[in-house]
Design a protein around this nucleic acid. Structure first.
Lengths: 217, 217
DNA sequence: ACCTGAACACCGTTCAAGT
DNA sequence: ACCTGAACACCGTTCAAGT
């Protein structure tokens, strides 16, 4: 008589948890994620999650990391033919697109790369591409950071709040310049989009100015 | 025998609540603010707050608005002599300084101006200054938005997380370019500062390029 | 009008117990 | 090793009751 077969199959895994948490965040937002709700979605009881993650926060970090991991980095890789400006431009768009797909997790991502490996890979890829293009290392680091600031700042403001839907919420008399039309909810989407484009172009134009000043390549 | 004097003096007011909430946020962070803790700090019981605010979130919005209200806007006012580029530069610095003074509320601020009056006044002031300088209204709106993206994105990343203190947290082999030194915690502060400066300059240089293209003034 | 205590429906996390 | 139920110490918010 042989002993009982040990746990035939773990019900949970880090990957399954992250996937379910991501789906819950996407569907109902960050504040809808509780350990009990998430566990229920996985057909399991609340405390089970703690066999795979130390805290709920770690689960959300992992969800954020999974989104970072989906950002296209091909334009920053050594083999790619694009010049640094074009590479930065295309990367910014692919980054923004990944965030737009998962707007509710953006505030977690914006807190900084933390220990998230995919976030660090992003920073590393930009750094590598910029140094290869001739930027000094210190400047390459700054470019990675400042692009992140702009892209994530734009995403937080655009995808997580913005102006209010209610047309009567503002008294035009209080804001002499904006009063007319510029802060209505239905205009907000196009403002966000065009402000992102304008800002990205300004950033890249400005970096070109600094690049010229480095001397010939 | 005259009837009991009616509530001699309200114990609470919106202003007192916002002030206490702000102090609590500054001292212990956003997640330390519970209605019970806040009420206790005010010498009152939890539900009392609901006589003055509809939700806890509204209290935090008011705290965020109070921080916005402290941003210096003098450089954007009609009388001021500064050209638009200098005004934008100085405003960005005063904005960042106000956020650095209250780092824990930054994530709330970053969600967008919402219904917060001080946030809207900021947007209005930038819009007014840019149109007076000759920018077309649509561009003036975008400049306000894109500057906000950059300033708040930088503040969220810098003041609320960033890289990790633990020097052993990263395996350099995983990040060939960053491995050496660029992501150590003690370097993070100077990186944030210099990346902000570099990005701000790039943004302003880039806007100047676009401004020239508008034609003569 | 403004504050209170009690209560409701939740939280994140720990832990002894089971297999 | 991995999952469970029970429990702890909290939450935000509502509401009847008091003054």
């Amino acid at each position: 008589m042989w002993r009982m077969a040990r746990p035939r199959k773990p019900l949970l895994s880090r990957d399954r948890i992250v996937e379910a948490a991501g789906a819950l965040v996407d569907a109902e937002g960050l504040e809808a994620v509780s350990t009990r709700r998430l566990a229920a979605a996985l057909g399991v009881s609340g405390p089970s999650l703690y066999n795979h993650f130390r805290t709920k926060d770690e689960i959300l970090e992992a969800v954020a990391d999974a989104v970072s991991a989906r950002v296209d980095l091909s334009m920053l890789e050594p083999g790619d033919g694009r010049d640094w400006r074009t590479a930065l431009h295309d990367w910014a768009h692919s980054y923004r697109a990944a965030l737009a797909d998962h707007p509710h997790i953006v505030p977690v991502l914006a807190r900084g790369p933390g220990r998230r490996p995919a976030g660090l890979r992003l920073a590393d890829a930009v750094f590598g591409a910029m140094t290869r293009a001739g930027w000094p290392p210190a400047q390459a680091t700054r470019i990675g950071a400042l692009m992140r600031y702009f892209i994530l700042g734009s995403a937080v403001a655009s995808f997580a709040g913005g102006f209010v839907d209610d047309r009567g919420a503002y008294d035009p008399a209080d804001y002499p310049h904006l009063g007319q039309a510029h802060l209505l909810a239905d205009r907000q989407r196009e403002i966000d989009e065009s402000a992102f484009e304008t800002g990205l172009r300004a950033l890249l134009d400005g970096l070109c100015v600094q690049y010229e000043a480095l001397g010939p390549h």
